[in-house]
C-alpha cells in the first residue's frame, strides 16, 4: 500500500460502519428505482492487493456489465457496479417496466437505464458517506461497459495500480428474493485522498 497511509483497527472499524450505512442507503435507492425490495449482504471494508482485484469477483472470462463512476471533492475515488450479463438484461426489463425476457440486447437506451441505476446507487452511497464524515463529493457521469469481467475490473487496477500495491475496497452484493437482481457494488477511495481524509476529519 501507499507507505504514507496507515490504518489502525479503529479506523477500519469506522470504515466498516460507513460502508454498511452507505450500502444500506444505496440499496434503498436501488429498491425505489426498480420497485422491489433490494437486499444486500456482506458489506465489508478491507485492504486488497491491487493486482488480485480481477480475482475477487471470480469468473474473469464471463460476460458482464460494469457501471463505473469517479468521484471528486474532499475525497476522490471510484465506484463500480458489476452485473452478470444475463442479469443485466433482466435488470433492464425491470428498469424500463418491460415483461421479463423482453430485453435481448443492451442498446443505448438499456445502457442509459443501467447507467442511471449506477449513478443513483453511487450517489446514495456518497450522500451517506458525506453525512458521516462531513465532506463533499461530486460524482462523474456514469460509464457503462459491456465486456468481459476481467477487462471491466482492470479499470480499477489501472487507476490505482500506479499509486500503490494495495487498495481500500468497500464492497457489498445486491440481490432480491427471486435472484432476478444480482450485482456487486464496489467503492474504492483513492489512497492519496484517503490520507487527506484521515488528516482532516474525525471520522464517524
Amino acid at each position: 500500500m501507499n507507505e504514507h497511509v496507515s490504518f489502525d483497527q479503529d479506523f477500519i472499524e469506522k470504515l466498516k460502519i460507513i460502508t454498511s450505512e452507505g450500502v444500506n442507503n444505496a440499496a434503498s435507492g436501488f429498491s425505489g428505482m426498480v420497485g422491489r425490495k433490494i437486499q444486500f449482504n456482506n458489506p465489508v471494508a478491507r485492504l486488497v492487493p491491487v493486482l488480485s482485484i480481477p480475482e475477487i469477483v471470480g469468473r474473469p472470462d464471463d460476460d458482464a456489465v460494469g457501471i463505473y463512476l469517479r468521484f471528486d471533492g474532499d475525497l476522490a475515488g471510484q465506484i463500480l457496479m458489476i452485473v452478470p450479463h444475463n442479469k443485466a438484461l433482466e435488470l433492464a426489463d425491470l428498469l424500463m417496466d418491460l415483461p421479463q425476457g423482453t430485453t435481448q440486447h443492451l442498446g443505448s437506451l438499456e445502457r442509459s437505464a443501467l447507467g442511471e441505476l449506477g449513478n443513483l446507487c453511487g450517489s446514495f452511497f456518497l450522500n451517506s458517506m458525506a453525512g458521516k464524515v462531513n465532506a463533499d463529493f461530486r460524482p462523474s457521469p456514469p460509464a457503462v461497459m459491456v465486456d468481459i469481467v476481467g477487462a471491466i475490473l482492470e479499470i480499477v487496477v489501472v487507476t490505482t495500480g500506479g499509486i500503490g500495491e494495495h487498495a481500500l475496497l468497500m464492497q457489498a452484493n445486491f440481490m432480491d428474493g427471486s435472484r432476478c437482481v444480482e450485482a456487486d457494488f464496489w467503492v474504492i477511495p483513492d489512497m492519496n485522498s484517503l490520507e487527506d481524509l484521515i488528516k482532516k476529519y474525525s471520522v464517524v
Binding site: 493486482l51 472470462d61 476481467g150 471491466i152
Partner: peptide, 22 residues
C-alpha cells in the same frame, strides 16, 4: 494474472490471460 508472466513447454498446457483491457 495481472503483472504476471508464464513460460511453458508442456503440450498439455494453455496459457491464458482473461479480459485484457488497457
Amino acid at each position: 494474472g495481472l503483472g504476471e508472466q508464464a513460460i511453458s513447454r508442456s503440450p498439455e498446457e494453455i496459457l491464458v490471460a482473461y479480459g485484457l483491457g488497457s
